[in-house]
Amino acid sequence: MKNVLVTGIMQGLGLQITKTLLEKGNTVYGVALENNAELKKLKRQYKEKLVVILADLADIEKSCETIFGKTIGYDIPLHGFVNNAAIAYDDIISNLQYDPLLRMFQVNVFSPMLLTRHVIRNMLLHGVQGSIVHISSVSVHTGYKGLAMYASTKGALEAFSRTAAREWGERGIRSNCIVAGFMETGMSSTLSPTQKDRIYKRTSLKKPTELTSVANMAEFLISDQSSSVTGSNVFVDSGTI
């Protein structure tokens, strides 16, 4: 089975993606800020199939060294990368501050770009026709008050992913984005029930996007089942229209 690097595995979607990949027999190299009880429990269950890497993606150079220099090295081939880690800095544009904006771009955009560099180099070294999956957001495609800055980080990823697909397709390396709808995770915990309800009413299914649905799509895109899918944005968003 495959070796898959996943970022942001402590909770929410990243944790669900990790569980789904492990259930399918993959080995997960998971990046987390800390080794919490959930991860310790998973580690007991899956043992050497789960490698937890403690790193803060806001510190790009140090985290790249921890992930690739110290843990994965040159001998472990990577077959997949799920770029899931992200932070949300939400506010209306007239309140925009540079420091939190910069930090969000470091975690959501710059760090994934540098990690992708290392992942592609690893795949080249091992002759692997791998798959890269970025978790984007429906906020890129449908405006939401207060999400201009966050949506712009995800829009950058979508552009990056499409070009990566074009650039590396001839080597068999695929890159896709999952455009996720609003989920019941820590990321949306600052929204009031009324705000959430308004968002969910904009969807066809009138309900939040399920974590398992997004995680299953990530597993599909990493797997060989999706061998002809690249350069795509796959919407898993309860049908936001």
Binding site: Y74, I120, R121, N122, L124, L125, E167, W168, E170, R171
Partner: peptide, 13 residues
Amino acid sequence: SLDLAELTVRIEK
């Protein structure tokens, strides 16, 4: 350019 990228990582290893 893609071959040179592969060459680079093989030399780096």
